[in-house]
């Protein structure tokens, strides 16, 4: 079947198997391999991307379901001049990543948390990231990074590509 999906602002139409997961579509078809897959059970959140303005786990969405959607991945966050998104910048400043495997999903989930709640508490950040697992950081610096990013204002909860929440 054919799907037409806009990823990081670029629309493309591809022939895919109906069972192709969005995570594999991004990695294999679009060649965007920042998005990682860390489990089989929608548990770890490493594959989190933004679809139509909402953070989702791309291992549990079919590419077919994303037909016509706007998708943003980690690769789509920094400006053309290399300027980091506030969440990216905060993860670096606060040492919010070590091995980096959870990071793409963690960054996208954090944007989702800040979209919902621009000024969260420590506890609210933890609850907002309950679907994202990290084995390296003990979450301490990830939480700090999200709190730091929140200080950047509304941009921390937005992605560069215009996305409408399709509610």
């Amino acid at each position: 079947m054919q799907v037409s999906i806009t990823v990081n602002g670029e629309q493309r139409t591809d022939e895919v198997e109906p069972r192709l997961l969005l995570a594999h579509y991004l990695r294999e078809v679009r060649g965007l391999r920042a998005t990682n897959i860390g489990c089989d059970s929608t548990s770890c959140g490493a594959c989190t991307v933004i679809v139509d303005g909402l953070s989702v786990k791309s291992c549990t969405v079919l590419a077919a379901q994303a037909d016509g959607a706007q998708v943003t991945t980690l690769e789509g966050l920094a400006g053309a001049d290399g300027e980091l998104h506030p969440v990216q910048a905060a993860f670096r400043a606060e040492h919010g990543l070590q091995c980096g495997f959870c990071t793409p999903g963690m960054v996208m989930a954090a944007i989702g948390v800040l979209a919902d709640n621009p000024d969260p508490t420590d506890r609210e950040v933890r609850e907002g990231l309950e679907g994202n697992l990290c084995r390296c950081t003990g979450y301490h610096n990830i939480v700090r990074a999200v709190l730091t990013a929140a200080q950047a204002g509304p941009a921390a909860g937005q992605v560069p590509q215009a996305q409408e929440v399709q509610a």
Binding site: S55, K57, N132
Partner: peptide, 9 residues
């Protein structure tokens, strides 16, 4: 239910 990403879907 689940986590924010799950509730979004």
């Amino acid at each position: 239910v689940g986590d924010p990403q799950v509730r979004h879907r």
